[in-house]
C-alpha cells in the first residue's frame, strides 16, 4: 500500500453515512472509492439489538485526482505480510468498537520502532465525536482496548504484534503533559531538597516520566507501591 493511505474502515449507523464520512476522511469524492460492506448492521427496536454498519473503502486505481488525506504523513508502511497485520488489526478494533456500539472511523499506519521495544508498532487511530468514553479514567479503558486487541491479533497471527491504539491523539497529548509534569516536579524536588511523590499511574505513564528524567543531573526516579497504587517518586541525588 502506498502512502498516503488509500484504504479506510468506517463504523457508522448506516452504510450511506459511513461512505460519505469515509470519502471525506480519504479526501476524495464518493465515486472515487470502492466500497466493501463488511457488515450491513441491523436496525433494532427502540435502540435495542441494533448493530452499526461497517464498510471498508479503497480509492479506485483509476482515480486520477490527488487524494488529500486527513494527515499522518511520513508514516512508514512496510509491504507484504505487514499489510496482513495492518488489515487484521484494524478489523479487530473495528469488530470490537462495533460490538461496543461506538461510532468511529479507524486509520492504521506503521509507527517508528522505539528504543525499548523489539517490535515496530502498528498504530490504530480512532476518530469520531464524543469518544472520551473510550479513554476512561487515566486512560484505563483505552489500555484495555489496546490489550484485548493485542491478544486477539497475536492469537490470530500466531506471533506478538506491537499495537498502539489511540483515540483522537490522546496518547500524544498525555505524553506531553507527563513530560512537563516530570520536569516541574523534578525542579520542585531540587528546590525543596525533598522527594516528590506523584499520583498513582499505570506502567506506560510511569515509563514516560522515568525516561524523561533518566539523564537528569540532580534527581533520579523510583516506583513504589503495588498494582493500582504504584506511583513514581522523584528523589534528589545526594
Amino acid at each position: 500500500m502506498a502512502d498516503p493511505k488509500t484504504s479506510i474502515e468506517i463504523i457508522s449507523p448506516s452504510i450511506e453515512e459511513a461512505v460519505s464520512r469515509g470519502a471525506a476522511e480519504l479526501g476524495v469524492p464518493e465515486d472515487a472509492v470502492e466500497v466493501e460492506v463488511l457488515d450491513e448492521g441491523k436496525k433494532g427496536f427502540l435502540g435495542l439489538g441494533n448493530r452499526q454498519a461497517r464498510v471498508r473503502m479503497t480509492i479506485r486505481d483509476d482515480f486520477e485526482g490527488q487524494p488529500i488525506p486527513a494527515d499522518r504523513s511520513g508514516a512508514v508502511q512496510p509491504e507484504g505480510e505487514e499489510d496482513e497485520v495492518l488489515v487484521v488489526t484494524r478489523e479487530t478494533v473495528g469488530e470490537l468498537l462495533q460490538r461496543m456500539g461506538v461510532e468511529a472511523e479507524l486509520s492504521a499506519y506503521w509507527g517508528e520502532k522505539d528504543e525499548n521495544s523489539r517490535l515496530v508498532p502498528l498504530h490504530v487511530d480512532i476518530h469520531g465525536s464524543d469518544l472520551s468514553i473510550l479513554i476512561g479514567r487515566r486512560g484505563e479503558t483505552l489500555s484495555a482496548l489496546q490489550y484485548i486487541t493485542r491478544l486477539i491479533v497475536g492469537k490470530e497471527l500466531q506471533r506478538p504484534v506491537g499495537v498502539v491504539v489511540d483515540v483522537e491523539g490522546y496518547r500524544g497529548r498525555r505524553e506531553q503533559q507527563l513530560r512537563q509534569l516530570a520536569r516541574r516536579m523534578a525542579s520542585q524536588a531540587v528546590e525543596r531538597g525533598k522527594t516528590m511523590t506523584l499520583e498513582p499511574m499505570p506502567p506506560n505513564e510511569r515509563r514516560i516520566i522515568h525516561i524523561e528524567l533518566r539523564d537528569h543531573a540532580q534527581v533520579y526516579t523510583e516506583s513504589v507501591g503495588e498494582g493500582d497504587r504504584r506511583k513514581l517518586t522523584i528523589i534528589v541525588r545526594s
Partner: peptide, 9 residues
C-alpha cells in the same frame, strides 16, 4: 479488560 470494554458497551 473485558469488564472495562463491557462498561462502555
Amino acid at each position: 479488560s473485558m469488564r472495562a470494554l463491557l462498561r462502555v458497551a
